[in-house]
Computed example of a mutant assay.
Amino acid sequence: MTDAPRLTAPRLDRQVCFAMYSASRAATAAYRPMLDELGLTYPQYLVMLVLWEEDPRTVRELGEELGLDSGTLSPLLKRLEALGFVERRRSAADERRVEVFLTDAGTALSARATGIPQQLADAAGLTPAELDQLRETLGRLTAALHAPR
């Protein structure tokens, strides 16, 4: 009987996917107390970030920017509207399009959220250059995994 080479099972601590998953959960947990003060969940915060960059945006644009389908995005927008931060309106130019506008309260919320990225960076303990490199690397990874095969 010969000894066949033994296959080595993948180790959890060597998996990039698990490192990303763990980091994502840790980052979301770190955001939670900051976002609780704003009355937002993390996905709602992401929607607001996009709108603070450019207002109004169509629902389709928001979905593309955030990588969310309408089934996920619609409840987020409904809740943000109930909180008084956004308003959804049918486009006058094309009634099939729904535009999302910041309300005065939604615009004012951005001032309260200004320090959040720095607070997370401080909690991460990484230099600005390390954070930039990490974001760039993750962006390349995301693009590669979304590329058609």
Rank of each mutant, 00 (worst) to 15 (best):
D3E: 08
S22K: 05
I116T: 04
E65Q: 10
R79G: 08
V50E: 07
L134V: 13
P75M: 00
F85S: 03
G139W: 01
E64Q: 08
D94C: 01
G139Q: 03
D55L: 02
K78I: 13
R97Q: 09
S24V: 05
L51E: 07
D55E: 01
D94L: 06
P148A: 14
M1H: 05
A30K: 01
A4R: 09
T72M: 08
E87T: 13
A4S: 06
D132L: 13
R140P: 04
D104V: 15
L131Y: 05
S74F: 05
Q133H: 12
L120G: 03
E61D: 13
L141I: 06
S110H: 15
L68I: 04
R149D: 13
A82R: 15
A92D: 15
F18W: 12
T58P: 02
G63H: 00
T8K: 06
G84H: 11
V50H: 02
A29T: 00
T72I: 11
S91C: 14
G67R: 02
E81M: 14
E136I: 07
V47Y: 00
S91E: 12
A105C: 11
S22C: 09
V98H: 11
T2F: 05
A29E: 00
L80A: 06
C17V: 07
T41L: 00
E95H: 13
V47G: 01
E53K: 14
L134H: 05
D104S: 14
P10A: 02
K78P: 09
Q44A: 05
P128T: 08
P43W: 03
D69G: 10
A143K: 12
E130C: 08
W52G: 01
R25P: 02
A27S: 04
S74G: 10
G39K: 07
A9Q: 09
D69C: 10
R60Y: 09
E99N: 14
I116P: 06
L141D: 01
T58E: 05
L109H: 08
E64T: 08
E53C: 08
R60K: 10
T114A: 14
P43K: 02
L66Y: 00
P117Q: 05
M20W: 08
L77V: 15
D36I: 05
L141R: 07
A113C: 09
L7K: 09
I116S: 02
G63T: 00
E87Q: 15
L35E: 00
T28C: 01
G125W: 07
K78H: 09
M48H: 04
H146S: 10
E99P: 07
L126C: 08
G139Y: 01
G71R: 14
E65L: 11
S24P: 02
A23W: 02
Q119L: 09
T142R: 12
R97F: 12
T107R: 15
R14A: 13
T2Y: 03
L68D: 10
T137M: 12
A4E: 08
L102W: 00
W52R: 04
L51W: 07
A129L: 12
T28D: 01
D13V: 03
D104R: 14
S22E: 09
L80T: 04
E64C: 02
E136S: 11
A144S: 08
G67N: 04
T114M: 14
L109T: 07
M1P: 05
A129K: 12
R149N: 11
L7Y: 05
P75T: 02
